[in-house]
Structures are given as structure tokens and as C-alpha cells.
């Protein structure tokens, strides 16, 4: 099976300390108000009658198998890596149109205030290059986040995923299931993600109106030119009706 980096997050272990958010911000030099990861506001878990407690749902880019952000990118600057399944951004090819930001249901993307291009979690590609785990995983004091190849049972995430496939859940919006690669164990709270993936209106207009419109126009122009070419080849001597006859020559 192809390598697919992902996370298995034990929601029960999360204590909402926001350590992962701070570590990420430092490790990736995420500017100003931009954040690559989050801990969703806690909700009261009332499932166990005897013991009510808060539940937390940490998250970041889900490196989806059906990434709507990739679908929305006109230049191919954002793509799903074939090598490890991480959704990457080529900053030099990105033109900063922000359609991917709008298309992501999780709000995992932001416009980098400094670089002015789309940016997001890439599981700390800079740290992975030197053999380290993502900053949020390393820093988590309760080890709520397990990271690795989900298809490799010897990786920390793969091991958990293989062992608890039945209990592990994805948090998705039923109307736009992007098949994320972050799985939750324990009680992550609401399994229904409230935001539905939506393509930007400029993209939808391009796809549904502009693209077919331009094709029809090209087709009509092509037919017209071919008709004229055909006529030119068939009627070699197409002389106008005489009307300037009396003018004669100059």
C-alpha cells in the first residue's frame, strides 16, 4: 500500500494546553494571526452518565485523500504528494488567489501574512527531512498525537490505526467527505464537522460557464473559418457582381 502519512489522535488524552499550537508556530515561523493547527473549543461529554467531563478535539490539515483545496487550485501549485500522501504547496507557483483557502472545510489553510501565499500544515516537512517528528507531536505532554504512515503498522500512528480501526473515527461533514487522514480515538466530541467544503464562486463560474462558453466560441470560430476556407477552395474565381463597371480603369 502506498505511504500515507497521517495522525491518530487520542482525544481523551488532550488537556487543551495549546502546546501543539505554540510549538507549531515557532517551528514553522507562522506569522501574526496565522495558525496551522488548533484545538477545537471543548464540549461537555454527557455520554457517560456518572462522569461528565470536557472533551477536546485537536486538529490540523487532514492531508485528505480527496482534497478540495487541490481541486480548487488553478495552477497545480498545491498537490497531494505521491511519495507520502501529504498535501503540499509550491510557493513559487502559487499566485496567491486564495481559492484553496476557501475550499478547505476545516479552515486548515491561511494566507501567509508575510509571504502572501497559501500556507498550511505539511506535517513539518522541514523537521521530517532531518528525521524529527512534527513539532506538535514532539511537544504534546500527554502524547495525544501519534504520527506516521497509516499503512505501516510499525509506525506509531499505523500501529494505533491497525489496532483500533473499529474505534478510530474521521471528523467529516457528511455532505462533503474529503476522506481525511487524521483519525480520532476516545471521545473527540462532535464527529460531524459543521462546515461543508465549498468551491469559490469564481472557480465554479469558470468551470461551469466560462470554460464551456470559450469552447463554444472557439468551435463557432473554427466552423466559420473552415466554411470560408472551403468556399475559397471550391470557388477559386469568385468575382463580385459588376457595379463599378462604368468607372472603368483609373
Amino acid at each position: 500500500m502506498a505511504k500515507q502519512l497521517g495522525m491518530v489522535i487520542d482525544a481523551n488524552a488532550c488537556i487543551d494546553c495549546k502546546g501543539c499550537m505554540v510549538a507549531c508556530k515557532v517551528a514553522n515561523q507562522v506569522p501574526g494571526d496565522n495558525w496551522r493547527n488548533w484545538i477545537k473549543d471543548g464540549a461537555m461529554d454527557r455520554s457517560a452518565k456518572s462522569k461528565k467531563r470536557m472533551v477536546f478535539q485537536p486538529g490540523n490539515c487532514m492531508q485528505c485523500d480527496k482534497p478540495t483545496c487541490v481541486t480548487a487550485c488553478p495552477t497545480g501549485a498545491t498537490y497531494k504528494s505521491k511519495a507520502d500522501g501529504v498535501v503540499m504547496i509550491n510557493r513559487d507557483l502559487c499566485i496567491g488567489c486564495g481559492q484553496c483557502i476557501k475550499a478547505c472545510p476545516y479552515g486548515a489553510r491561511y494566507r501567509n501574512e508575510k509571504l502572501k501565499v497559501a500556507d498550511k500544515c505539511d506535517f513539518c516537512s522541514n523537521r521530517r527531512e532531518v528525521g524529527l517528528e512534527p513539532a506538535c507531536v514532539s511537544t504534546c505532554p500527554t502524547k495525544a498525537r501519534a504520527f506516521g504512515d497509516l499503512n505501516d503498522p510499525s509506525s506509531p500512528a499505523g500501529k494505533l490505526y491497525a489496532a483500533q480501526k473499529e474505534e478510530a473515527v474521521q471528523v467529516v461533514n457528511a455532505q462533503s467527505d474529503t476522506d481525511p487522514n487524521i483519525y480520532y480515538l476516545g471521545a473527540p466530541g462532535d464527529k460531524h464537522w459543521p462546515v461543508k467544503a465549498q468551491m469559490p464562486s469564481a472557480f465554479t463560474f469558470w468551470k461551469n460557464v466560462a470554460d464551456p462558453g470559450v469552447k463554444v466560441l472557439m468551435g463557432l470560430m473554427g466552423v466559420g473559418v473552415l466554411a470560408m476556407l472551403g468556399k475559397q477552395l471550391v470557388m477559386k474565381n469568385d468575382a463580385p457582381e459588376e457595379h463599378h463597371g462604368e468607372d472603368g480603369h483609373e
Binding site: P74, C94, I95, G96, C97, G98, Q99, I101, Y110, R111, E113, L115, K116, V117, P200, S201, A202, F203, F205, W206, A210
Partner: peptide
């Protein structure tokens, strides 16, 4: 877009592409 615009302006870029 990559040099001057802010997140609030990107709708302009999106329609510009189209």
C-alpha cells in the same frame, strides 16, 4: 496578489483569473 494584497482582497484575484 503576491506582493501587495491582503487576505480580504483575494476575491478580486479569484475573479481576475476567471
Amino acid at each position: 496578489s503576491k506582493y501587495f494584497l491582503t487576505a480580504a482582497d483575494v476575491w478580486l484575484v479569484q475573479w481576475s483569473i476567471t
